[in-house]
C-alpha cells in the first residue's frame, strides 16, 4: 500500500468518526460538509420518496375538489392540496442540495423505480374520504414528520419544520369533516364509518414494516435521519386514534383493539403484510392510475416548460442586443 493510500484511508476513517461525532452532538450537516456516500444516498432515497408521496398524494384529494359540497370546503381542499404541492417542492429542493436534480427524481418516479407512500394507491370513493385522509393519513404523516424536524441533515430538517408548521391545519380540517358527518343523517354517518373502515389499516401500514423486518432502521437512527422506530410511531398513532375515534361516535375496524393496562398502550390486531407488499409491488387498487396521471401531467406540460425557456432565452438575447 502506497503511503498516499495509507494516509487517505487513515484520514478517511478519521473524517468518518468526526462526522458521526458531529451527529452525536446534534450538529447539523450542511450541503457542502463532508458526508459518507451511504448517508447521502440514503437521504436522497428517503427525501425523494417523501417528495413523491406529497405529489402523488395530491391526486386522491384533488379528485374531490370539483365535487366538494360547500364553497368553504372547496376552498379549504384546494388550499390543502396546494400545500402538498408546496411540501413536495420543499422536499425536492432539499434533495437537490445533495446533488440530484428534480428532473432525475421525477424521472425515477415515472419509470416506476422510485417508491412513494402506498396509501395513495387507495381510491377516494366518497366525500368522507377527505375527512379520513386528513385525520388518519395526515395524522400518521405528522407523527412521522415531527421528529424529522430534528433530522441531522440541515436542509431536510428545515424543510420539515416548514412542512409541519403548515400541516397542522390539514389534520384538523379532516377531523372536522368527519365530525360534521358523524352528527349528520344516517347516510352521512354511514359514509363516515365506511371511510374509517377503508382507511384505517392502510394508515396503520404507513409506518412501514415491523422493526424486526426493517434492516436499515439502526443505521438511519445512528445518522439521526430517523428518530423513532416504525413500531414506536405506529403504537403512538394507534393510541391517539383509539381515543379520538370515540369523539366521532364511530369505531376503528379492529376487533382486537383493547387497552392494555400493563403496557399503558392499546393492543391491536395483526397487520395484513401481504396486502402491504402487494400494494407496494404495484397491485394496489390505483397504482397504475396514479402514476399515469403524474406521467400525463408532466408530458402534457413539456411544451409549456420548453416554451418558457425558449422565451427566456430569446429575451436575454434581445436584452444583450439592445
Amino acid at each position: 500500500m502506497s503511503t498516499f493510500v495509507q494516509i487517505t484511508v487513515l484520514m478517511s476513517s478519521a473524517i468518518e468518526t468526526g462526522f458521526q461525532e458531529k451527529i452525536d452532538q446534534d450538529i447539523r450537516i450542511e450541503p457542502r460538509d463532508w458526508m459518507p456516500e451511504a448517508y447521502r444516498k440514503t437521504l436522497i432515497r428517503q427525501i425523494s420518496q417523501h417528495a413523491h408521496s406529497e405529489i402523488v398524494g395530491m391526486l386522491p384529494e384533488a379528485n374531490w375538489i370539483t365535487r366538494a359540497p360547500t364553497l368553504k370546503r372547496k376552498a379549504t381542499l384546494i388550499a390543502k392540496v396546494q400545500d402538498e404541492a408546496g411540501h413536495g417542492l420543499y422536499l425536492y429542493s432539499s434533495a437537490e442540495t445533495l446533488g440530484v436534480s428534480r428532473e432525475e427524481m421525477i424521472d425515477q418516479l415515472h419509470q416506476g423505480k422510485a417508491k412513494y407512500s402506498s396509501i395513495f394507491n387507495y381510491p377516494t370513493l366518497t366525500w368522507a374520504d377527505m375527512g379520513a385522509i386528513g385525520w388518519l393519513v395526515d395524522g400518521a404523516a405528522i407523527m412521522n414528520q415531527v421528529p424529522l424536524c430534528r433530522a441531522s441533515y440541515g436542509p431536510y430538517a428545515r424543510a420539515m419544520v416548514r412542512i409541519c408548521r403548515e400541516e397542522s391545519f390539514h389534520q384538523r380540517q379532516g377531523f372536522e369533516i368527519l365530525l360534521v358527518l358523524s352528527k349528520g343523517n344516517e347516510a352521512q354517518r354511514r359514509m363516515c364509518q365506511d371511510a374509517i373502515d377503508r382507511w384505517w389499516w392502510p394508515s396503520v401500514m404507513m409506518f412501514g414494516p415491523n422493526d424486526d423486518a426493517s434492516p436499515h432502521t439502526a443505521q438511519s437512527m445512528r445518522w439521526k435521519i430517523k428518530r423513532f422506530t416504525n413500531d414506536e410511531l405506529r403504537q403512538r398513532f394507534v393510541d391517539v386514534c383509539a381515543g379520538q375515534v370515540k369523539l366521532l361516535g364511530m369505531h376503528l375496524p379492529d376487533p382486537d383493539l383493547v387497552w392494555n393496562e400493563a403496557r399503558q398502550h392499546y393492543d391491536f390486531g395483526p397487520i395484513d403484510w401481504n396486502e402491504f407488499r402487494e400494494v407496494i409491488n404495484g397491485n394496489g387498487p390505483c397504482n397504475k392510475e396514479r402514476l399515469a396521471a403524474r406521467v400525463k401531467a408532466h408530458a402534457d406540460g413539456a411544451w409549456v416548460r420548453e416554451a418558457a425557456l425558449a422565451h427566456a432565452q430569446k429575451n436575454s438575447i434581445r436584452e444583450k442586443a439592445a
Binding site: P31, R32, W34, E96, T97, L98, G99, S101
Partner: peptide, 12 residues
C-alpha cells in the same frame, strides 16, 4: 476529498 469547488450547492 472534495477538491476545490466553490459552488455553494452541489446541484447537478
Amino acid at each position: 476529498y472534495d477538491p476545490a469547488n466553490d459552488k455553494v450547492y452541489r446541484h447537478p
